[in-house]
Nucleic acid binder design. Structure first.
Lengths: 156, 156
DNA sequence: ATACATGCAAACATTTTGCTTTGGC
DNA sequence: GCCAAAGCAAAATGTTTGCATGTAT
């Protein structure tokens, strides 16, 4: 198995549990537990990285699914705050599960295209505090991406 | 000198001078000085904010211009490093002149939609240094946007 | 005169919607 | 049975290219 990026230290049982919890919440909001929904959550949780819509419909469990189905699921999940939409200036929109322990700061290699999370805590809390307290902004969040050559590619 | 005199207070003569200099450089790269190019640079310099392609073709001096023309100009300017492409997770691609005194950290109000620059220096130099020296990344740059309610909208 | 730049149309890609059928509850 | 979800197709939107003509050099 191609061990992908950062911390894939979630056991199978754990990830089942997380997905179960998410689905419970979604059902409280009126959504139904369907195969497509489960597969989608699986894919996004396990890979632990942002996906293009077009990539999602290639993922094993979702292959063959209509893009429109995935699109509508993603949009619903986004409306319910379970999914984040990202943009890195290249092709299209990326989507990622919006879990509490993700910090959403990304590293993009412009050679191999790999997208990973920044491997240490975010430094922008202070900046957000300043914007709130000294400039009057409210409800702040941020999106941050670093672009460059990853260690592997800069050797090659 | 307080770091960001970059607000929008550039005199007309100054901005003419800046545009003249940019055009000279562009001509060295083989581009021709055309009305569309001048109007485009004008619009982007004066407004001092990122533009959607669709917005650019509405700007007074460019109104009526073919989108394809503006598109090709922007792409050329981007290839030559004079324009930056940005992305804020909503609709499309934004473009902004890539001037030395801009730092490219943005504030987006999700109520009024206004996009402004962060009014103080960027704090990410340290992080980039760490990524370079401890993690082996090369040629780093970043894109950063804060999302929230601006002072005006959070009062209303 | 020789390219590059433009305008127009059309090819492509991506996102979004309408509508019928399927399936969760 | 009721209503959300899925599948299929097509519309809307956004990006990119081809080609004939115009224009800067």
């Amino acid at each position: 198995m191609e061990s992908h990026s950062s911390d894939c230290c979630v056991s199978h049982e754990e990830s089942e549990a997380i997905i179960g919890r998410i689905i419970d919440e979604l059902r409280d909001s009126g959504m139904r537990k369907t195969e497509a929904l489960e597969e989608l959550l699986h894919a996004m949780l396990e890979a632990h990285r942002p996906f293009l819509l077009s990539e999602l419909s290639e993922v094993p469990g979702l292959a063959g699914r209509d893009q429109a189905t995935i699109y509508r699921l993603i949009m619903k999940l986004k409306d319910l705050g379970k999914v984040r939409q990202l943009n890195f200036g290249d092709k299209g929109n990326y989507f990622q599960l919006n879990l509490a322990d993700h910090h959403h700061d990304y590293l993009l290699c412009h050679d191999c295209g790999e997208i990973t999370e920044v491997p240490f805590p975010c430094v922008l809390k202070e900046v957000e505090k300043k914007l709130r307290e000294q400039f009057g902004w409210k409800n702040l969040s941020h999106s941050l991406a670093f672009h460059g050559q990853c260690p592997a590619c800069s050797k090659a």
